[in-house]
Nucleic acid binder design. Structure first.
Length: 293
DNA sequence: GGTAGACCTGGACGC
DNA sequence: GCGTCCAGGTCTACC
C-alpha cells in the first residue's frame, strides 16, 4: 500500500521527526540513512503491520507491508495524519515570534508540530514512563511493555505494536512492576488501561476536546501519574502550548540562559516565558538555547 | 498554598 | 562483587 498525504504549509518532515525523543521509543524506529520513520501498529481489524513514512516540505508518503482493505487504508491515513499533525496551523506562533532572534528559524524550519503516537493512550503511557527516571530507563520500560503485551508483526517478525488498553488491563500491576520493571508506576498504568478498556474513560476524546486549556490540563492531571510536567508535555502533543513542561532539563536550560548557571526554580522558568502567553510551550520547546548539554 | 518525604530503578562510585 | 548514593516527577500528609 502506498499513500501520499499533503500537509498544511509550512511543513518539514524532519522537523516533526526530530521534535522530541519519541522517535527513539519503540515501536518507532528511524532509519537515519534513508530518512524513513518506521512504526509497527495493530489496526482495528487485528492486522499488525509496519508503516514506513518518508516526507519533505509538502507532506508525507506512507508505504505499508501487505495488502490492506479500504477501511484499513483509511485508518492508516488518519493515524499518520494525526501523528504528523498534517493539518496543524502555527501561523499565530510564527507571527508572535517575529523579531525574536532565538526563534528566528521557527517558521523557516516549520517548527511547531511534535511527533505523536496514533493514540493518546500510547502518548500518556509513554509520558508517565518519562517521569522520575532517566531517558535510558524510559526506553527500556517502553521496550519491555511492548515485548510483554504488544501484538507481533504479521509474518513472525520480532517487531511488535504498542499494546492497547485491553492487553495491559488483562495483565496485572505485579507483572508491570516485576517483569516490565516500571516500578511504582505500575498501578497508575494498569488503572488507566483498565478504565479505558472498560469504556469507563474516553481518553481519546481529549484529542478533539474544545475545553479551554486550563480545564484540559486539569482533566489530564486527574490521570494517576500525570502531574504538572506530564500534563504540559501532553498539552503540547495535543497542540496546546499555554504551559511549559518543566523538568530538571528545563531548569538547567534556563539556568544557563539567564542565570549564569546558578540553580533556578520552576518559578524562574515560568517567568522567563510569561510574555509568550498561549505560545509559552512552543517558545520554550523551540528556543535556540545556549546550553546544548 | 507550600513543603517534606516516600515512591522505584539503574547507573556511578568507592571499597 | 557488594553496598551506598544519586537523579528523576508525582503523590500524600502535614503545616
Amino acid at each position: 500500500m502506498q499513500l501520499t498525504l499533503p500537509a498544511r504549509s509550512p511543513f518539514s518532515f524532519m522537523s516533526v521527526v526530530n521534535s522530541h525523543g519519541w522517535l527513539q521509543l519503540a515501536p518507532f524506529e528511524f532509519d537515519e540513512v534513508a530518512s524513513v520513520l518506521h512504526y509497527t501498529d495493530r489496526l482495528a481489524s487485528g492486522h499488525v503491520l509496519e508503516y514506513r513514512v518518508s516526507g519533505d516540505s509538502q507532506g508525507v508518503q506512507v508505504t505499508a507491508t501487505g495488502r490492506l482493505n479500504k477501511a484499513e487504508q483509511r485508518e492508516v491515513a488518519d493515524k499518520v495524519a494525526w501523528m504528523f499533525g498534517l493539518d496543524m496551523d502555527f501561523s499565530g506562533f510564527y507571527a508572535a515570534s517575529r523579531g525574536e532572534p532565538k526563534l528566528a528559524k521557527a517558521r523557516r524550519l516549520a517548527h511547531g508540530r511534535v511527533l505523536r503516537s496514533p493514540t493518546l493512550f500510547e502518548d500518556v503511557i509513554k509520558t508517565i514512563l518519562t517521569t522520575n527516571t532517566l531517558w535510558s530507563a524510559t526506553k527500556r520500560m517502553t521496550g519491555n511493555l511492548i515485548r510483554q503485551y504488544g501484538a507481533a508483526l504479521d509474518g513472525g517478525s520480532e517487531k511488535r505494536a504498542f499494546p492497547g488498553p485491553a492487553s495491559i488491563a488483562a495483565g496485572t500491576p505485579d507483572v508491570l512492576r516485576d517483569t516490565v520493571r516500571v516500578g511504582y508506576r505500575a498501578s497508575a498504568i494498569h488503572d488507566l488501561a483498565r478504565r479505558v478498556a472498560s469504556g469507563e474513560y474516553d481518553l481519546e476524546s481529549l484529542k478533539t476536546s474544545t475545553l479551554p486549556t486550563l480545564e484540559l490540563r486539569q482533566e489530564l492531571m486527574k490521570i494517576k501519574g500525570v502531574g504538572p510536567y506530564a500534563a504540559a508535555n501532553l498539552l503540547l502533543i495535543l497542540g496546546r502550548s499555554d504551559f511549559i513542561p518543566i523538568d530538571s532539563w528545563a531548569l538547567k536550560l534556563v539556568s544557563h540562559e539567564w542565570y549564569d548557571g546558578q540553580p533556578v526554580t520552576a518559578r524562574e522558568v515560568e517567568k522567563a516565558f510569561e510574555s509568550w502567553g498561549q505560545y509559552k510551550g512552543l517558545a520554550y520547546w523551540f528556543w535556540d538555547w545556549e546550553y546544548k548539554g
